[in-house]
């Protein structure tokens, strides 16, 4: 136990590594800003998020020591990201696939809805009278 403990408390990374990772993060920031001025259509998001993911991985692995620490922490981190993904994906199973079997789209009746007038209890008008159906 004590030998192990000494080994763990004294895991010191070289200064150069920290500075290199920091430099890489700044460079990646520059890259992602530069790339955002190019137009890839839908791919812009993918590129931006991929670069962000690389940056986050660098932070987690080196600054947060996940590369060197107990792998349990890495596991916890991955679990968090995984469940977040489940939350997003499963919610979008619904929000992205509504109204696929109807001819009338069940989306918002008034897309620019701010139905509230002075009194929130009174939500008069707009809904039932509007027959136009937008998406």
């Amino acid at each position: 136990m004590t030998a192990e403990s000494a080994e763990h408390t004294k895991h010191i990374l070289p200064l150069r590594l920290y500075l290199a990772v920091g430099g890489a993060l700044i460079v990646l920031t520059a890259v992602t800003v530069a790339v955002s001025f190019l137009h890839f259509g839908g791919w812009n998001v993918v590129v931006a998020l991929s670069i962000a993911a690389i940056k986050a991985t660098l932070v987690a692995m080196f600054f947060m020591h996940l590369k060197y620490d107990n792998k349990l922490y890495l596991f916890i981190f991955i679990v968090a990201v995984l469940f977040l993904a489940v939350f997003i994906v499963f919610t979008m199973f619904d929000t992205m696939t509504r109204d696929q079997i109807y001819d009338v789209k069940a989306g918002p009746i008034t897309p620019d809805a701010t139905i509230y007038q002075s009194n929130p209890a009174d939500t008069s008008g707009t809904v039932a009278d509007s027959t136009s159906v937008h998406r």
Binding site: V86, F90, F93, D94, T97, R98, D99, Q100, I101, A106
Partner: peptide, 18 residues
């Protein structure tokens, strides 16, 4: 248990696929 929450919403206007 994290993957089943939508069963509270079968008649809520949720999509049929969900």
């Amino acid at each position: 248990s994290f993957l089943v929450w939508g069963h509270h919403m079968f008649v809520s206007g949720q999509s049929e696929i969900a």
